[in-house]
Design a protein around this nucleic acid. Structure first.
Lengths: 259, 259
DNA sequence: TCCCATTGAGTCATCTTGACACAATGTATA
DNA sequence: TATACATTGTGTCAAGATGACTCAATGGGA
């Protein structure tokens, strides 16, 4: 227990942490809807890798998806927006609801309560966290460079993970990431997925890399180029990249005009 | 109030009704999850019209979608299945979750409590129905001929309504039907929509009628025929319909073999 | 017997898609 | 300085899907 405090104090003083969480727990059932939580899968594209933002509570040996609860007078989307803004600092973010995690397994053994106990939190007389929770899941596409994360609440660490190398995750959060991915795959050719993930001007090859990761298959280079250009959603920036490689490709960006 | 009882007794004795609903209300919060309800949109195709099953409670001046609550140890889909089976008597039914109704308006003014009060139900000391409810919505495709509805619970009437001529509906149930329709439109070419709605052998024209209603647009007759046949999901029944009309079309049915 | 709406099948031009060819580019290497 | 070569932009071609249309066959009514 002492060890927990000690570790926590590296990021957030143990006392402060306990004050915060105690206050939160006391008020939770007055502020939030019972039995419903929100989990968010926050994607980014960095160094040719699709990544997900994960957080860690205290010195728990696993990571969590950023999540939260729904205020009594708030829609689910507003709750997701609030949580996403608080975690990423981004205002222009478009949460997409893709799944409801409602398996009975997820709240067996009182996982949340056990986690809180390990975090040295006193739950005496508070039964709000002991109920079964159903989680409404949203995904969001972000630009890693614009995300500003501040360590707050009871979080001790945050980290972007390559989608192919996820660490141990809390509860069914791994399943939730997979569901987000398969939904993202469906949305890939329907929604402006690239627009929200590609911040800086990019080459056609880089864009193709993103599509191949999400679509889970190799795409023909020349056909991909033809298709992307025919959709008329890209703007070619006449200047070429000063690459040291063999031929300089064009740079592109998504047209912002129409939405 | 007497009037209510009188009307109800036509279908369900007033006393029996009150016993049932009182027992239900007493136990609700022990059996079901708080704040979550299920609504179902049950479609059928009859006489060239797409229809929805609606029910009426007591002598309320509006209709409701068949709905219910989620047991504490039950997934959302299992809850939808249970509700659909109880209402339609069908076992082979495939609920598809398409929407979460979570607007704040829907539970303003305590609509459910007011309805129950009008139904002469004593809610003294019971606050379970006063909370905000979020409804998870499922649709199902049925064969009207196979649906066996028994008047039960607190229902006084059920009726199939043409999708284009819906009566006054409770709360946001009209919006929910619209959401179901737009989801059905997306699913039309992805899932075996026709298979579940067309029971008897049908002509290509009848199938086209169904597609045009759901898809909300005129389809070219010859191209529709070509496409349907090329998908290899229909079985041509060599015998022709003995119509009094000009030419006898083939009858078809969906191949049951592969699924 | 002729009329005519409906049905089943075919034609044709257009568009999309997958596979592949080829010239242009820009640096490294001989 | 000349050549090699990986990468990039564009073009070609065949196969398949799609929308618009034609046409013969059907079968009861006028």
């Amino acid at each position: 227990m002492k060890k927990t405090k000690a570790k926590l104090s590296k990021n957030n003083s143990g006392r402060k942490f306990e004050n915060t969480i105690t206050a939160f727990i006391k008020n939770a059932e007055n502020i939030y809807l019972p039995g419903i939580s929100i989990d968010t899968v926050i994607f980014s594209f960095h160094d040719g890798k699709l990544r997900v933002l994960l957080i860690r509570y205290g010195d728990m040996p696993f990571y969590n998806l950023p999540g939260g609860y729904v205020e009594k007078e708030e829609t689910l989307e507003d709750a997701a927006l609030r949580i996403l803004r608080r975690r990423t600092g981004l205002n222009a973010i478009f949460p997409e609801q893709f799944y409801i995690a409602d398996s009975l397994e997820r709240t067996r053994n009182n996982a949340v309560v056990r986690m809180m106990t390990k975090l040295n939190v006193d739950l005496t007389g508070n039964h709000w966290f002991e109920q079964r929770f159903i989680s409404v899941c949203f995904y969001a596409l972000t630009d890693e460079a614009k995300v500003r994360i501040t360590i707050q609440d009871f979080i001790s660490e945050f980290k972007w993970f390559d989608i192919g190398q996820l660490p141990d995750l809390f509860l069914d959060h791994k399943l939730i990431v997979e569901k987000a991915l398969s939904r993202l795959r469906v949305d890939l050719y329907q929604r402006p997925v690239g627009l929200n993930l590609m911040n800086k001007p990019f080459t056609m090859g880089e864009l193709q890399q993103l599509y191949e990761i999400i679509d889970q298959r190799k795409l023909d280079r020349t056909n991909f180029q033809r298709k992307m250009l025919s959709m008329n959603i890209l703007e070619r920036l006449e200047k070429k990249q000063t690459g040291k490689a063999y031929k300089s490709p064009y740079l592109y960006r998504f047209k912002q005009s129409d939405n």
